[in-house]
Design a protein around this nucleic acid. Structure first.
Lengths: 152, 152
DNA sequence: ACAATACAGTACTAGTATAGTACCCTTTCA
DNA sequence: TGAAAGGGTACTATACTAGTACTGTATTGT
């Protein structure tokens, strides 16, 4: 199974929670409690999300975290990228080093993986934080997931 | 980064290699040598691929493995599913158990994950084994899948 | 029949990456 | 100035993936 890490899952929960009141300042403790993730882990995630520019932080007694921009402007790629690095199923499509592919066969495969990676990327980009908290029925217009994203 | 396991990567290499002569019988030893993956690991993968019904096996002195169907009929979802289980970024969309989601928040999120998972699934379904071995530059143009020779 | 060859299945080991924690520092405000 | 809150880094432990070993079963040729 292709899967994202647990931490990323938490991260989405956290952001989704905070998106319920995008203007407000949340303390780490508050978030931890609301989402049910242990404080140390929560703070770690919050820090990472700040680095990823999805959150802003304010220090001091009345400090806390808040969304860096509107929930509509934060997509799942942003979140995943912030917490797990560049999106991709294989290193093939994401790595910058030139001498990666040793096997001649796999090199032939490379560009196809890139296409697939691209499709995954696009799929994640389609869904924003604002949409994530919508009830099930509400159709979030993902443009009929298919070849649209795969330009052959 | 979202990624597939190393073994799945190997699996694709193996199948790609075997697709070069879809009719022929390959021994585990032969495949191992050709692909550059240690024999024990190769056999493990081959067994799994048989279980996943992507390969057929023949025992005995003249035994070996061959593709269960035409390379055009084997997609990346098939391969990934065989080697890693149901395709999905989270358990949310794939798990069958009803009582999985404890958190009320994450339940609201569920169907959106399912959409994303679906998109990834479809993206993988787009690419067949036959396409994977084509040279990079060619915009993958299948010579009209010859339905006549289909075994299934 | 028997031996050689090849797949089938399962159980184990090891290495690595992820998850989670702890500690100490800096900033802000009453 | 001290309490509250975030910033940063380094460490530990656990879980998962990768890889191996061993024993069993089927097929074929002599």
């Amino acid at each position: 199974m292709i899967r994202i890490g647990k931490l990323t899952d938490y991260g989405i929960l956290i952001l989704t929670h905070m998106a319920q009141d995008g203007e407000r300042l949340f303390t780490a403790h508050e978030v931890s409690h609301a989402v049910g993730v242990p404080l140390p882990t929560t703070t770690k995630l919050l820090k990472t999300l700040v680095k990823g520019q999805l959150l802003e932080s304010h220090r001091g007694t009345k400090g806390g975290y808040l969304l860096a921009r509107n929930p509509e402007m934060i997509s799942m790629v942003d979140v995943v990228t912030a917490l797990e690095g560049p999106v991709g199923l294989t290193d093939c499509g994401t790595s910058q080093q030139p001498g990666e592919c040793r096997r001649s066969v796999s090199c032939a495969i490379k560009t196809n993986w890139q296409r697939i990676n691209q499709a995954v990327h696009d799929a994640l980009a389609q869904v924003t934080l604002a949409e994530m908290r919508l009830p099930a029925v509400h159709p979030v217009h993902l443009p009929a997931p298919r070849a649209a994203s795969l330009r052959v």
